[in-house]
Lab assay of single mutants.
Amino acid sequence: KKTCTFCKKEIWNTKDSVVAQTGSGGSFHEFCTSVCLSLYEAQQQ
């Protein structure tokens, strides 16, 4: 099972999830929504 990098909820429907390359290492992270992605990126600043 996949979990959201930001909120840690399980991702049930992968077509609704967002995968983004974030951080200095350029690793890929999966998020349940684009909202979680935005919040995660804001936290990394």
Rank of each mutant, 00 (worst) to 15 (best):
Q21V: 04
Q21A: 14
A20K: 13
S34W: 02
T33W: 00
Y40V: 04
Y40R: 07
T3V: 05
T33A: 11
K1Y: 02
Y40G: 08
T33C: 11
A20C: 02
K2C: 03
K8D: 10
C7N: 01
G25V: 11
I11E: 03
S24C: 06
T33R: 07
S34L: 02
N13I: 00
C32F: 00
S24D: 11
G26I: 07
G25P: 11
E30D: 15
A42P: 12
K1R: 03
L39D: 13
T22Q: 09
K2Q: 12
K1T: 09
V18G: 11
Q43S: 09
K2E: 08
T5R: 06
F31M: 04
Q43T: 08
E10P: 09
K2N: 02
S27V: 13
Q43C: 05
Y40F: 14
G23H: 09
K9S: 08
Q43E: 13
V19F: 07
G25Y: 02
D16Y: 03
G23L: 05
Q45W: 14
S17G: 13
C32L: 00
V18M: 11
E41N: 10
H29D: 15
V19S: 09
Q21T: 10
H29Q: 14
Q44Y: 04
C36E: 05
C36W: 00
T22R: 10
G23V: 08
N13R: 08
T3S: 07
C4I: 00
F6Q: 15
T22W: 02
S24I: 07
E10D: 15
I11V: 09
W12L: 01
T3P: 03
E30V: 05
T22E: 13
I11G: 09
F31V: 02
Q21S: 07
N13G: 14
Y40D: 07
S38N: 08
C32V: 00
G23F: 05
Q21H: 08
C32M: 00
K15T: 14
S38W: 02
E10R: 04
T14D: 15
Q45E: 15
S38P: 04
F31Y: 07
T14P: 15
A42D: 08
E30W: 05
W12R: 14
A42M: 05
C4M: 00
E30R: 08
K15P: 12
Q45R: 13
S27C: 12
C7A: 00
A20W: 08
V18W: 02
Y40M: 10
E10C: 02
C7Q: 00
C4F: 01
C4W: 00
L39V: 08
V18I: 05
Q21L: 06
F31Q: 03
V35C: 05
K2H: 01
T5V: 05
G26H: 03
T5E: 09
S34P: 07
Q43Y: 02
T3M: 07
A42I: 03
V19I: 03
E30Y: 05
V35A: 13
G26Y: 03
K8H: 15
Y40E: 09
K9Q: 04
F28P: 15
G23Y: 01
G23I: 03
K8S: 11
G26R: 10
C32G: 01
G23T: 07
A20Y: 09
K1D: 15
A20S: 13
C36K: 01
C36V: 00
E10G: 05
G26A: 12
L39N: 14
K9L: 06
W12Q: 15
G25R: 12
Q45G: 07
C32N: 01
F28M: 12
C7E: 01
T14L: 15
Q21E: 15
C4G: 00
D16A: 04
F6W: 07
Q43H: 12
S24N: 07
V18E: 14
S27I: 09
L39E: 15
T3Q: 04
D16L: 04
V18L: 08
V35T: 10
C32D: 05
S24H: 14
S38L: 02
S24V: 10
K9M: 06
Q43A: 12
C36D: 02
T3L: 06
K2M: 09
S24A: 15
L37E: 13
S34D: 12
F28L: 13
H29P: 14
I11D: 15
D16R: 05
T22V: 08
Q44F: 06
Q44T: 08
F31K: 02
Q44I: 07
E10T: 07
E41H: 04
K8Y: 05
Q43G: 14
K1G: 07
Q44L: 08
C4H: 00
Q44R: 12
K8I: 03
